[in-house]
Every structure is written in structure tokens, then in C-alpha cells.
Design a protein around this nucleic acid. Structure first.
Lengths: 219, 219, 219, 219
DNA sequence: AATGAATGAGACTTCATTCAT
DNA sequence: CATGAATGAAGTCTCATTCAT
């Protein structure tokens, strides 16, 4: 009664019925970023994320263990992306210390990195005690690495220029604070401060500190 | 939507103290700040606040209309306190423009203002789209006022010193970003950056910009 | 406004049965009717409803959006049931106008329709300003339809019998008031007035108004 | 040290500093009726009542024992008022049985009695199981009295007119149902049915039942 | 007699997580 | 792999009642 020759539903080529694990994960991380930007991290629920991703409710707990984990992986993703970006810029830049430093500066305000969507996530983690701790456990080493590199570059620049009375760590600290302060302003007053103006602010600061290096190249 | 006639099962166990409306309100605002610092704004519930205040659950809705309103009044309180502080410093400072500007700078890092508890609240509002809008509606005019004053002071200083190539608004913008960036670092890395170091960072920046004004008094 | 990451403390103790959306909705509507009859609409809480339905607290907000919506859908269900009942009776009745009118009358006191449980719901909506408005927005068109049909039937009966001094709308209005008044008495004094006696009351009234039509068939 | 001759603060005439108990109670009952009409009985809180009365929160529990008691006293007040009204009309009416019956009918639709505000309270009590029980415990004897009187009047009228096939209790029951049904329509569709039309409906019914009695007196 | 701040039980609602399908 | 119905803890808010003043 059932002699019809059945053919396998899934041929060797159509075996992958659904997206691969990695694709799904990235899809959900992107949706999380979008949702945090749109609804805030407190207004971001499994529903908002999965709805933006166009997937079903329960899938987050399937691919990530929990909401907490989803958030951590989202931050990790952004941190890695950010790191890769400035690190590549730093590596690819010219040989001069200033060039390398400016490459790092510019990386912070690159259109791919310095998005209001992504800034929303960063400041979501800055905004709450518990998440600040998570941030530190996940991102501190990256921040430290950049700080050390920046400090060393400043040291070289100071050496090159024979500047006096300038502490490399002091400048590096200044830069880190400026990145955050300017990004906060970009996030809060979108119309009032553009990425490019922010970049120029930092460069303006550096040109004041290292005047000899900026005499020729106004950038 | 409920209309069941309720009668309290348990008589009052603790004697009730009656305090003036203003005292209770401040008590609850203080508890809110403490709770936000301790648990984050998302982890701050009516329970955490009233427990810290040593009062009963329902009292917040009695004195403030809602949790949302409590948060807004808390921010308003801090904004007013902050404003009064720097504004008084600005008024009381010596007649020189730089003195006034430095007074404003110092006010930002004053031990009463620049507490990690209070910073927690500020950055809680920076951390989420919805709350950023609330922040702006409540604090923008204060921020604007300070920005205008700082800009004008910079203009005067530039005029006095005959500095060239410096844009007053540029410096004022820089200062605002620095306040935020440095405060974020104080909040995130308590051991690594003290209020005093932060203050010195800003002064160091200004001494680089306005060297003539700093020749004699290195502060 | 809360964003604490929650994790259920207790694993699921009862196995979860998954039913179709429509089945669950009807189950909850039935439970709502039962609860309103038992506890009143004010004493009907999400707990009473879900307990009667044997389901968990949160399920009402899952299938209906809110308690308010649950109540509205419950009323809509009863209104539709009632309408379908009298309308079918009206359609199925013999060709005579009186037959059709009596069919409508009888439908009001049919054992499936005229339950104390269901009457409880109707009068719950009559009992409060806000709910009266909801009732009107949901049921008015049905009531209007019946009123128009009844009026037309009365007009035909008057024509047939050559009755004088009788206004069709007047009789229809009388009938509508009688339905409500009698149902209220059934609801309030269960032992004192049966559905059947109520039906006979209305028929008695009509036989007084339209004597010729009742000469032969006393019903 | 304290030899000043003190005079009593409260002279014999100004002793009553505040309104008498009865005045306060009535003030609160009136406010309760207004609130029930405006907010529904479920939306009526101690606050809505005391606010309408222009008094302080805690006063209800002072003059009435509880909210429940306030509601019961409000119903009792209305029941007594209603009873006094129709009973006086019944007593004052002409000697004829029909006159007395019509006096009772008219009393139900008197402008002082048949207010939407007051109807709101009646139907609030009809609308919920628990309150229906309270209604019965408080008002049943009044309703019974009126039913018996009406029945007796109908018996007399039937006797006088020599009507056949009419059951006095049947007519009395009809009248009671009509009162409720018509009042419900007045409450729900204010524009559509006036007190006067309602009164005419009942009279129209009676004129159909007792035609001989209405031959001469048309109104 | 009156006020109104305070209490706390309980209502509605949200939502992370689970799991039958 | 994926879906989405279901659970239940926890949060916000309301409000009858109490009682110091």
C-alpha cells in the first residue's frame, strides 16, 4: 500500500536546511545591538531581539545560553571589532609614531565603528554597576593594550620632538577620556557633534601638545 | 481594575513616624541614588529604594507619583545641586576669566559633587535612549548655560592672552567632553584615576592651550 | 521599567500541555464567565480566572493582551452567541410575523442563553459607567438590529390584525425592557422566577396586545 | 506663674466646632452616590469620595466603619428614600385602587428618584454577586411590601372592572420587571428614553390590561 | 473631630526560560 | 534545528485602613 519509491528529502546539497550556527549567532547579535539602540538595554527583551531578527522567541536560549550571555557576547563582538579596527589601522599606518597614533585616533571615529547604534551598547554597559564589572572583565585587557601602545607612541613622539614637561601616560589618559567624552556627545547630541568634528577635536588637542609635528602636515 | 474590599490582615507592627513631606522626599531621593549606585538603575526597584530608606513599599507612589517620576526628581536634584555648585564657584571666584573658568573646572571634581554614587546616576541616564531623552529635557538648559559661560570665558582669556588659532567654542566643547570622559574613568576605574588627577588633567590641558596665563601660577 | 535578569527558581512541576490558541482562549473565556458569576467582575482577578481554568497566572496576558481585553472578548463572545441564537430562531421560525416574534422572545429565555452565569456577565457590564460604555461600543449594533426586526414584526402583526392605537416601536421597546427586567429578576431571585415563567410573562403581555392572534393558539 | 484668668475657649454657643455627625454622614453618602455615578463602584475609592465631599482621607473610616459599610449605608439611604417616596404617593393618592397604583408607578419615574446618578447605584448593586446578596438583605422587605401592595391593588382593580383571565400577581410582577427594565434603558441610553416616556410605557401597558379604567381618564 | 502620612496586601503585567511538538 | 505556548517569579502601582498629631 505504500510502494511508492520515496526519494530522500534532503539531498547531499540541500542538507543544510537552516542557517549555520555562526550565521544565526551573528544575526542575533546584530539584532541585539539594534534593539539596545532602539529600546535601551532595559527595554531589550528576548522578544524585541528575536522580532528584529525575524526569528522565534525561544531561539536565543538555544544559541546563547541566556540573555546575560547574549549581552556579553554582543559586547565581546563589539570589543573585538573595535580592537581589530584600531589595531589594523595602527599596524597599517606609516612608520612614524604620530602617524600610528593618529591612526588609532581616527579609528575611534570611523563610520563603521562610531555608530550611534554601537555607541548605545557601549554606554549601556557604562551605565550600570553590574554591567561595568562585566565590561571590565571582558574589555579591560583590550583597553590596557591600547593604553600601553598609545603611551609608548607618545613617548616616542615626545622623544622625537624633544618636547618637555609632557608625561606620555598623561597624554594617553587624556586621549582615552576624550574618546569617551566625545562619543558620549555624539550619542547624546547627534546633530551637534559629528564624527569628523570629534576627530578634529582630538587632533586639535594633539597639535597643541605636539606643535612641531603638526607644522607641516595640517591633516 | 479591582474592587475587592481589602482589609489589612496584620496590624501595624512598627510605630509610624510622620515626617514632613520634604524630608521624606529627600530621604527617598537619597535612597534612590544609593540604590542606583549599588544595584544599577535597572536593578533599582521600589523595594531596594524603600528598604534603603527604611520605609514601606507604597510610600514612593505616595510622595512621588511613580517610579519614573522618582527617577526624574532624583536627576533634577542632582542637576540642581551640580549647577548650584559650579555656578556659585564661578560667581565667587576672582575677577579674572581664567580664575572663573578654573573654578568651574574644579567644581566638577569637588568631593561633594564628583562621588561615585552620584556619577552612577549620571551615567545611568546616559546609558539608555529613553533616559537620555529625559536627561535632555531636564538638564539641557543647565548644560547650555555652562557651555555659553565657558565659551565666553575662553573668549576673554584668548583676548587677554592674544592667543591665535584658538576657537573659544572649540575649547569649551573640549572641556565638556573632558568632564564626561574623566568622570567615566573615575566611575569605572576607581583606583586608577582620582578626582584630583582628573582635575589636574583638565588644568594641564588648559595650561597647554593658554600658556601665558599659566606661566606664573602653576596651580 | 525593570531590567534585572531573572532566572526561574523552580523548574516546571506540572507537565505543560500545549493546546491550540483558540481552545485556550475559549477555555479562558469560560473561566472568566464562571468567575464573574462566582466572585463578581470586581472580584474576578487574573488569579481567579486562571485558577478556574487550571492554568498559570501569566497566560491571560499571553492569549489576551490584558484583563480589560479578556473582559471585552468575553462580552463579545456572549453577545455573538446570543445574537446567533435569536437570529437563528427568528430565521427558522414559521412564516408568520407573530411566530417569528415569539421565536425571538423564546430565544431570550432558552436554557443555553438565559443562565445565571451568563446573566451575571451581562449585568456586570450594566453595573458600571465605564463598562456600560464598553457594552455599547461592542453590542449596540446587535441590540439595534434586534430592535429594528422586532419593530418591523410588530408592524406586520398590527397590520394583519388590524389593531388600532398600537405603536410598533412602543411594543418593541416594551419587549426589550421586559427582557432586561425579567432577566434581572431571574438573576436576583433564582427561586422566585423561572425562565419559563418569564417567557410566559412576555407572551402574556403580547396576548393582551394582540388578542386576535392568540385566540386559537394559547401556546 | 500662671495666674491669668483663662476663659473657656468654647462657649456654650460655639461648642459645635464642626458639622454634626449626621450632616457629615449625609455629605459622605451624597459624595458616594456621585462617585459611583461618575467612576463606577469599582472606581470609587475612599479618595474619590472624600475628594468630592471636600474632606480628608481618613474621615470615612471615622464616620462609617469601613468602605463596605459606607456602601451599605448609601444603599440603605436610597432604599429608604425610594420607599418613602412611593409610599407617600400611594397614601396621598385618591381613594381609587387605580389611582393608588398609578401613584406608585409615577413615583418610580419622579425626577427626584429616577436620576441617572441614583440609578447608577442601584445597578451597581445588581451587577455583582456579592452586592446582590447585600441588596437583598437590605432591600428585600421593601420590595416585598411594594409587591404585596401592588398585587392587592391589582386584585381590587380586577374586581372593580370585572376583568377576566388576569392574575394580580402576574401584573405586579410585570410592573416590577418593567420598572427595572425601563430604568436600565434610561441609564444606558440617556438620550433615547426619558423618564416621562418610561412612565407612559407603564401606563400604556396598564391601559391595555385594564381598558375600562382608562376609558375616561386618558393620562 | 479631623487630618493626612504611612503601611502592606494584593492586583495587573512583563518576561526569561523551558520544553512539547 | 526551530517554534511558540506555557510557566511563574518579580516588578509597579493602588488603596483600605490605621494612627500620630
Amino acid at each position: 500500500m505504500n510502494e511508492v519509491v520515496r526519494q530522500p528529502k534532503t539531498g547531499p546539497k540541500t542538507r543544510r536546511r537552516t542557517a549555520s550556527k555562526e550565521v544565526r549567532r551573528q544575526q542575533l547579535i546584530d539584532a541585539t545591538i539594534t534593539s539596545i539602540a532602539r529600546n535601551g538595554i532595559g527595554g531589550t527583551t528576548m522578544s524585541t531581539v528575536t522580532e528584529i531578527a525575524g526569528l522565534s522567541q525561544g531561539i536565543v536560549n538555544f544559541h546563547f545560553r541566556s540573555k546575560q550571555n547574549l549581552f556579553e557576547e554582543t559586547l565581546t563582538f563589539l570589543a573585538r571589532e573595535h580592537h581589530d579596527h584600531w589595531h589594523k589601522a595602527y599596524t597599517d599606518a606609516g612608520l612614524g609614531a604620530l602617524d600610528k597614533l593618529l591612526a588609532i585616533v581616527d579609528a575611534h571615529f570611523h563610520p563603521v565603528i562610531c555608530t550611534r547604534k554601537k555607541l548605545s551598547v557601549w554606554f549601556a554597559f557604562y551605565g550600570e554597576a553590574g554591567r561595568r564589572a562585566i565590561y571590565r572583565s571582558l574589555v579591560d585587557n583590550i583597553d590596557d593594550e591600547r593604553f600601553e601602545i598609545s603611551t609608548e607612541l607618545c613617548r616616542l613622539i615626545i622623544e622625537e620632538g624633544g618636547y618637555s614637561g609632557i608625561e606620555p601616560r598623561f597624554v594617553a589618559q587624556m586621549l582615552e577620556s576624550l574618546y569617551d567624552g566625545l562619543c558620549l556627545h555624539i550619542l547624546m547630541y547627534p546633530g551637534s557633534l559629528s564624527r569628523d568634528e570629534a576627530r578634529r577635536q582630538v587632533r586639535g588637542y594633539l597639535s597643541g601638545i605636539f606643535p612641531k609635528h603638526f607644522e607641516i602636515s595640517p591633516a
